[in-house]
Design a protein around this nucleic acid. Structure first.
Length: 492
RNA sequence: GGGCCGCUAGCUCAAUUGGAAGAGCAGCUGACUCUUAAUCAGCCGGUUACAGGUUCGAGUCCUGUGCGGCUCACCA
């Protein structure tokens, strides 16, 4: 870039050349004996046991700080488990190691061996006898105290963010543990994990604009999945009782603090369950995960304390909208009348929107921001939910819920529609309603309908946005903070 | 895609009304045998995102472009 960066990089390259000139391989193989965390545990163990022997270990990690004091030096190294201080004494090191030490920079990866002890101030420290350079770093690290705060750089060079900002790294630890906990929870209830196609001939199971790609050998366009739903249902038809998939899905829509074009979704399907069973499972699962990963069932999010302990509030969608917007959608059976009522409330309403989308707008405008504590909204209009089964006593509503917390939708579930004739009609109706719009309309998935005709048992299905769940559990307001490499525009 | 805001040294940030582009960290040289944001002395480091414009003079004002953030739209 500028001559400045070149200068620092150049200095480091000169050091690299010097090191090579002494016959040292700056990128050798190496086996470490302990992590820094294990080493500290070992030291404590030795101290507790009164053993006279000082533990000798070899460790490896990235140099994070150096405090050179003439004949002695202190370096801090960090590995995946933590960090530890190193103590170098010129009278303990060989000539070669002393020379090498002079060419070690912050950022280098080194291996060290020696004995563990505590300094006068009580800091666990390794007194180094042997030093090995494991990887010379040619680029300067971000500032040690303030870390890296340039958001653009944090996302584009996430590795620097992870090196410089321990809080950022911790979020991804939590994310990993959340996903592990979900698997344990579901496996423990008899679910089996499956994998279904990401490349699909038609993108079904939701209505979103898909990414399109092309398979050369087949000379056929494929869509990246926008949901795994229709394939998981095929597996239910095939006789699996409980299945789930944790995977990436792709939606070619706008990017925001709550949306990334590719995100992680959990979908689960359980035969002979309905949406009430699924509701009970969701609140239990989230509370247990939080307890297991964070050791608590309350989280801080956006200035609120959110209590995840079951039971969560249950609120009929119609009542919720009535309460927060003053509109009772039951009194407006078609899009035109509902739109007119919304316009009375000074809302700017897209005349293209059908009744389902209008109701969705009422939810996101009036209801969702108010649902801070975990809440299930129940019983959605059928036109918003083409894959859900109608309520036994009301053909206009389906057995569906969405779960909200922190003003975010985190889950969506329903008693699955398993009537193939009805399902076909729903698809056709949806197709008709969307035909006027410029967006690509989902084609009727004949292959799925054929599968349904063989008979799908009554089933409860669930979708959970994993990224948003992790946002909730880690208190992050932007989805980019919980996705390691969020989508950004390429820099020219 | 619209609106608002941002972009200054490798990193974190200053720069008064438009009047000499600065500091800390990092780096380099030196001193220092228990430091831990080590300390001390000295030094190096800039096409102020990019391209134009206004002006005696632009980091600062104007126009455009790029990228980012927030937000609206979009997203059942």
């Amino acid at each position: 870039m500028t001559s400045r960066l070149d200068r620092i990089a150049q200095q480091r390259r000169q050091k690299l050349d010097r090191i090579r000139g002494r016959g040292i391989n700056p990128y050798p193989k190496y086996h470490r004996g302990h992590t820094t965390q294990q080493a500290i545990a070992l030291l404590k163990q030795q101290e507790a046991s009164d053993a006279a022997e000082t533990p000798v270990v070899n460790l490896a990690g990235r140099v994070m700080a150096s405090r050179l004091m003439g004949k002695i030096s202190f370096l801090d190294i960090r590995d995946g488990s933590g960090k530890i201080q190193l103590y170098f004494r010129s009278d303990l090191l060989g000539q070669d190691d002393l020379k090498l030490l002079k060419d070690i920079d912050i950022g280098d990866i080194i291996g060290v061996s020696g004995k563990l002890f505590r300094t006068k101030s009580g800091e666990p420290t390794l007194e180094v006898k042997d030093l090995t350079l494991l990887a010379k770093s040619l680029q300067p690290l971000p500032e040690k105290w303030h870390g890296l705060s340039d958001i653009d750089k944090r996302y584009r060079q996430r590795y620097l963010d992870l090196i410089a900002n321990t809080e950022a790294k911790e979020i991804f630890h939590v994310r990993s543990q959340v996903i592990t906990a979900i698997r344990q929870f579901l496996n423990g209830r008899g679910f089996i994990e499956v994998e279904t196609p990401v490349l699909q001939p038609s993108a079904g199971g939701a209505l979103a604009r898909p990414f399109i790609t092309h398979h050369h050998a087949l000379d056929q366009d494929f869509y990246l999945r926008i949901a795994p739903e229709l394939h998981l249902k095929r597996l239910i038809i095939g006789g699996f009782d409980k299945v789930y998939e944790l995977g990436r899905i792709f939606r070619n829509e706008g990017i925001s603090t709550k949306h990334n074009p590719e995100f992680t979704m959990l979908e689960s399907y359980e035969t002979y369950a309905d949406y009430n069973d699924v509701m009970a499972m969701v609140e239990k699962m989230v509370a247990e995960i939080s307890q297991q990963v964070l050791g608590k069932d309350e989280v801080e999010f956006g200035g609120n304390t959110i209590n995840l302990k079951p039971p969560w509030s249950r609120l009929e969608l119609r009542q919720a909208i009535k309460e927060y917007s003053g509109i009772d959608f039951d009194q407006y059976p078609d899009a035109d009348s509902l739109r007119a009522e919304m316009e009375k409330k000074n809302m700017e309403v897209d005349p293209q929107k059908d009744r389902g989308r209008l109701i969705d707008e009422l939810i996101s405008t009036f209801v969702e921001p108010n649902l801070i504590q975990p809440t299930f909204l129940l019983d959605y209009p059928v036109e918003m939910s083409p894959l859900a089964k109608s309520k036994p006593d009301n053909e206009r509503l389906v057995e569906r819920f969405e779960a909200f917390a922190g003003g975010m939708e985190i889950a969506n579930a329903f008693t699955e529609l398993n009537d193939p004739i009805e399902q076909r009609q729903r698809f056709l109706r949806q197709q008709k309603e969307r035909q006027t719009e410029d967006e690509t309309v989902e084609t009727v998935d004949e292959d799925f309908l054929l599968a349904l005709e063989y008979g799908m048992p009554p089933t409860g299905g669930l979708g959970v946005g994993i990224d948003r769940l992790v946002m909730l559990l880690t208190g992050q307001q932007s989805i980019r903070e919980v996705i390691l490499f969020p989508q950004l525009k390429e820099k020219p």
